[in-house]
Amino acid sequence: MEEYIILMRLDLITKDKQPSPEQLESYMKMYHDWVGDIAAQNKFVGGKGLSTEGKVIKSDKLVTDGPFAEIKESIAGFITIRAASLDDAAAIAGKCPILQGEGNSVEVRKIVSK
């Protein structure tokens, strides 16, 4: 088993794409069930939510208020899991409920440092 990080991206900027409180509650439920599925397989390692505020610094030292304002996808949060392979990890990530939202995405990367 290796560790993988699943980065979840969604549009945090476009005002009319933000979920209503009921939608949010429903998404949270789906999200918790998805994480619960992973935890039941003893593959859950950790996870953090991220604030919607932040900063972006670019190579020309320009600092803007984040999240990443030029791309409509900002990192919403991430979890780390154990999986037998990248394919296994991708299969798990593919079930993330944010993918039900158009334009959202998840990225899976193997963790290589200790």
Binding site: H32, D33, V35, G36, A39, A40, Q41, N42, F44, G47
Partner: peptide, 17 residues
């Protein structure tokens, strides 16, 4: 279900699963 989802994240056990 909700409580077990959280419990398994803190402390996995086969019986809880």
């Amino acid at each position: 279900l909700h409580y077990y989802n959280l419990l398994l994240q803190i402390d996995y056990s086969p019986i809880a699963a």
